[in-house]
């Protein structure tokens, strides 16, 4: 009797949450799998039928998908590397007790607080060829007006710049938190052993920060992979398809061309590729740090 009552209580407590989870997460997930196995275009509801893996085969033969993949990495890799280097550098600078640093810390985190759409609109004004502030500064040194978003490479560079501006503070925040949690004893020991500042950074700080950097890298990687808002506002994927990233391409298929089945198939391909990439990254970065912390403990 007691067990029965206990089971009933469990059901009452867990049931609603399970139902909500099922309806908001699992059902759409299953539905999108079903969609990816059909040829459903919203403009042709009567032509909807089961087509098996056709959409996935179509994706593999789609040159624009491969182009979008290349474009994604052309924007992702430089953004990620520069954000990490700058983020770690700034965090090291901020990790000291000095006057005014608190205010500076607060200021440097501001870009992270701004909504991506607002960031896009703000930078669209700054990149404006005729009255943008960037070209104004360039004109002060006698340089001509730059058409920031008009040409493929420059448009990519402009997007990278915006991402660095907005997301470096995130890396700073994480690394700074990591730095402040490092054990002071290790530094004391290094100083006793006569280590230089560079040696301390190279052999103490960075290895101990490795798991923290891995987390920052993972978050930034995921965020860059699905980056959409700023690209949509600034370039819309153009000029041509120069800034058409994977998420932009999937959006176009689903929302502009209303080809929801193909968009679902592309999303699943994208999801699997992202999981593989991030899992690999976690393995690469996490393993040595565990050995390190193990060694440190002994």
């Amino acid at each position: 009797m007691e067990t029965r009552r206990r089971r009933l209580l469990l059901l009452v407590l867990v049931g609603p949450a399970t139902l909500i989870l099922l309806s908001t997460s699992i059902v759409p997930l299953v539905y999108s799998v079903l969609l990816s196995l059909q040829n459903y275009n919203l403009t042709d509801p009567f032509g909807r039928r089961f087509v098996g893996l056709y959409q996935f085969v179509r994706a593999l033969r789609d040159p624009r998908l491969w182009q979008a993949t290349v474009t994604t990495f052309q924007i992702l890799v430089p953004s990620l590397v520069i954000e990490l280097v700058l983020g770690i550098g700034i965090a090291l600078l901020l990790n000291r007790k000095s006057r005014g640093l608190k205010a500076f810390r607060a200021c440097i985190l501001l870009p992270m607080m701004v909504t991506p759409v607002v960031v896009g609109l703000m930078w669209a004004l700054m990149y404006n060829t005729n009255f943008g502030i960037l070209n104004y500064f360039l004109s002060l040194v006698g340089a001509g007006a730059v058409e920031w978003l008009a040409y493929p490479n420059l448009a990519k560079l402009s997007l990278i710049l915006v991402d660095i501006w907005q997301s470096t503070p995130f890396v700073v925040l994480i690394v700074l938190a990591g730095l402040q949690s490092l054990p002071p004893l290790a530094y004391l020991a290094a100083r006793v052993d006569g280590a230089t500042r560079w040696q301390t950074l190279r052999y103490i700080t960075l290895p101990m920060l490795r798991p923290i950097i891995a987390v920052a890298t993972l978050f930034r990687l995921l965020s860059l992979l699905v980056s959409f808002d700023v690209i949509y506002v600034l370039t819309g994927g153009g000029p041509g398809s120069a800034t058409e990233t994977l998420s932009m391409y999937i959006y176009k298929q689903g929302f502009v061309l209303c080809d929801v089945s193909y968009a679902s198939a592309l999303s699943y391909i994208f999801l699997v590729a992202s999981i593989v990439a991030t899992t690999r990254l976690v393995k690469l970065t996490a393993a040595p740090s565990q050995q390190y912390s193990g060694g440190g403990a002994s």
């Binding site: 041509g240 398809s241 120069a242």
Partner: peptide
């Protein structure tokens, strides 16, 4: 034609590529 969204996307891309001198 019902296919106009796709036509618009293809035409828009081609014009943009020509205008930015990619092609």
């Amino acid at each position: 034609v019902p296919e106009f969204p796709a036509i618009l996307e293809i035409v828009g891309l081609a014009l943009s590529e020509a205008a930015s001198k990619q092609k």
